[in-house]
Design a protein around this nucleic acid. Structure first.
Lengths: 161, 161
DNA sequence: ATCACTGATTGCAAATCGCAAGCAGATTGC
DNA sequence: GCAATCTGCTTGCGATTTGCAATCAGTGAT
């Protein structure tokens, strides 16, 4: 029933939370693609996730505290949101993306987000995390002068098409 | 035969390379535990990996270019070494460890390495990567004044027992 | 009433997992 | 010389997980 951790190692804890071939990709699509609903995630997945796997991963991620599910009643779209814990994965995504960028073959179109995060560094990550807290946790939006990180990500993505 | 990538996304590339429940832990033990031989990895694993899984993961990691295997002849211990690609996972390990540290229950003993990496920041990571290149890639050791990162890791680990 | 859309569930074959045992070649101890 | 031990695995096997396709009940719009 209750699953126990294999060890008390922080790396192992992270692996147990999202160390499989789909969890991180689902989180990526919620975080960077702003896909909040089941069918959006299903159809928008670059890698073609199957619906039963998606359903299972969403449940697991909710149980693990990496997503919350806002139910809007039967027959109405439920929305998935990031939590503080998953928002804090931004630096992990940034480092993973930079590694993939440098050590694996990637396509220009799908590379732009990792490139922007790598170039921006920790300061940009913090800015992005603050924006995610506004969208997903309902924090009040602060004043801003320039374009948001989300806007810059969208622009870079559009420019690479 | 040849497996093709599910997509050209850098995050997906990283997930395909080591996104399962054991690969990253094997790399962790080689990197931080300096376990270079099959039976060392088997016996020293905190999480208790099975021998067939270890054999499979070592093969996969070699094929993926994250480990090299130096065969010492039949009946003699083969040694596994990190490659430049896996040495560059140090920042990924640091961020994953820091995340696990903050968002999952961990034990004091197994926490110390992640704590030291998190506290040291990118500068310490670079220093550690340079030391790994000396041990695993045979680069010449530079002059040094203070204790190495490896020594500091070992000392912190010993102090937490 | 018909159609599309909601978030899934079910059936099934194939692959993978994890445990235990076994194996051939080489070294060590006596 | 001979057994015990160590080397890096491999094999068998039952249980679980995966991935694909089809399906489903509930809601809303026409």
């Amino acid at each position: 029933m209750g699953e126990s951790a294999r060890s008390g190692c922080p790396i192992n804890a992270a692996v147990e939370a999202f160390g499989d071939s789909w969890s991180l990709l689902v989180l990526r699509d919620v975080m960077f693609g702003d896909r909040r609903h089941f069918r959006e995630l299903l159809a928008g997945s670059e890698e073609g996730i199957a619906s039963n796997i998606l359903a299972d991963r969403l449940k697991r991620l909710v149980k693990a505290g990496l997503l919350t599910r806002e139910d809007a009643g039967p027959g109405r779209r439920a929305a998935y949101s990031l939590t503080e814990a998953s928002i804090r994965l931004v630096p992990v995504f940034a480092q993973l993306g930079e590694w993939g960028l440098r050590h694996r073959p990637t396509t220009r179109r799908l590379r732009v987000r990792a490139e922007l995060l790598a170039a921006g560094g920790p300061q940009l990550w913090e800015e992005f995390m603050a924006e995610l807290r506004v969208v997903h946790l309902g924090e009040p939006a602060p004043e801003r002068d320039g374009p948001s990180v989300m806007e810059r990500l969208a622009a870079a993505y559009a420019a690479a098409l």
